[in-house]
Every structure is written in C-alpha cells, then in structure tokens.
Amino acid sequence: MTDERTPQVTVTACPDGPLLVRGPATILDADGRPVPRRRATVALCRCGGTAVPPWCDGTHKVNGYRSGPEPQDGSLS
C-alpha cells in the first residue's frame, strides 16, 4: 500500500501532446545520466519534433502529431 503522505510520481499522457511528469522522478539521458530538471512539473516530448529534448516545446501542435486511442486521463504510474 502506498503512503499517501509521500509524493508520488505520476505520468500523464496528454492527448496529442507530451507526457506530463509530476513528483520526484529522475529523468535519465541515453547514457543514464540525470537530465537536470528546472521545474517541479515537466513535459516530455512524445511527438519527436522538439528542439529542446527531452522536453516538450509545443511542436506537436504544428506537426500533426496524434497520440491515438490512449486512456484520456491515464496515470501510467
């Protein structure tokens, strides 16, 4: 059973948009090094078009990215 008082990591799949990460998750790059997080909640690019990887820069809105039939408000954990 999870302790409600401990901040949980949640990843929200935003329809046609990024993965929104809340909570104390460490984001690692391809070499396993932590990517510095500059804000409490971050958005990870899912469309592949970002100019500031791994973060979202809004490009999904202009490159036609569609996330497909995912759970609309799914917390993937």
């Binding site: 948009g17 990024p18 929104l20 500059r38 909640t41 971050v42 979202c56 809004g58």
Partner: peptide, 14 residues
C-alpha cells in the same frame, strides 16, 4: 517560456 509554457498549456487546458 518555450519549455515552461509547453508544460503550462497542458495543465491550464486540462
């Protein structure tokens, strides 16, 4: 604002 508002727009919209 490139990075921050890509986060904020999701929170603000949803």
């Amino acid at each position: 604002h490139v990075e921050a508002d890509a986060v904020h727009e999701q929170i603000a919209g949803r």
